[in-house]
């Protein structure tokens, strides 16, 4: 298989107004930098973005917020972005805050072909409002779980460390985060990688995401990999 496309512009060319996108990354770690830049350039609007965070004011998804391309964010934590908070409080941006594990598992459910999952996160809180719940026995004690639906995303955009033309992906360190589940969950999955290697050179035992889940792949350029909280100790 050869799923290689030239660059981010080509990879995202059919992303349409009002599409639902999944974007990998945790904070600014492991985000698809090239595709975000291309989406800003393309100017596609009315997007629903499923992503753990919303970037910072001038990087990551924050760039798409600045240009008002995002209609709705589905995230677990958005505390790092002042423009986000402004658009939310003024009502310009619709936001659904959901628990981080629920976010991960709703991606997972989509990629595993399961319509829903049950999780205890959010029971008894406003997250549970309007949701079906069910009690199960856990270690002999009855416990309540919420039914959470698999996500339905038009496109998943992920960032990996290495990939090959088949779409096989390997992630690095904590830049893995949401990327593997999102890669499995998109109707169309776009992967940008730091290094695109010839088919047959990745060790099959080491592959995190098998290529069957990936539809387009390209080698990204000029990765900034910005650090959000630089914390160090003295030698």
């Amino acid at each position: 298989m050869n799923k290689t496309v030239k660059n981010a512009d080509e990879a995202i060319k059919d992303i349409f107004d009002n599409a639902t996108l999944m974007l990998g990354g945790f904070g600014l770690c492991g985000i698809p930098e090239n595709c975000i830049t291309a989406l800003v350039k393309k100017g596609v609007k009315g997007l629903t973005c499923i992503s753990n965070n919303a970037g910072v004011d001038d990087f990551g998804i924050g760039l798409m917020l600045k240009t008002r391309q995002v209609k709705k964010m589905i995230s677990s934590y958005v505390g790092e972005n002042a423009e986000f908070e402004r658009q939310l409080l003024s009502g310009e941006l619709e936001v659904e805050l959901i628990p981080q594990g629920t976010l991960a598992t709703r991606c997972l459910a989509a990629g595993y072909g399961m319509p829903a999952v049950f999780t205890p996160a959010g029971v008894g809180t406003e997250v549970a409002i309007g949701k079906e719940s069910r009690k199960f026995l856990v270690e002999g004690v009855e416990k309540e779980f919420l039914m959470e639906m698999a996500f339905d995303a038009d496109f998943a955009i992920v960032k990996a460390w290495k990939g090959d033309p088949h779409g096989n992906l390997i992630f690095r360190e904590t830049a893995r985060n949401f990327n593997p589940m999102m890669a499995m969950a998109g109707k169309i999955t776009i992967a940008e990688v730091e290094e695109l290697v010839p088919a047959g050179t990745l060790e099959p035992d080491q592959i995190h995401t098998p290529g069957i889940y990936v539809h387009r792949i390209f080698q990204g350029a000029n990765y900034e990999k910005r650090i959000e909280q630089r914390t160090v100790r003295k030698k």
């Binding site: 945790f26 600014l28 460390w161 690095r172 904590t174 990999k225 650090i227 160090v232 100790r233 003295k234």
Partner: peptide
């Protein structure tokens, strides 16, 4: 592990508070 020594920060290696570790 602990925070990295100055100059050894790795952007791919952070904790849940987004700090380099």
């Amino acid at each position: 592990g602990p925070f990295p020594f100055e100059g050894e920060e790795d952007p791919d290696l952070i904790n849940a508070g987004k700090q380099t570790i």
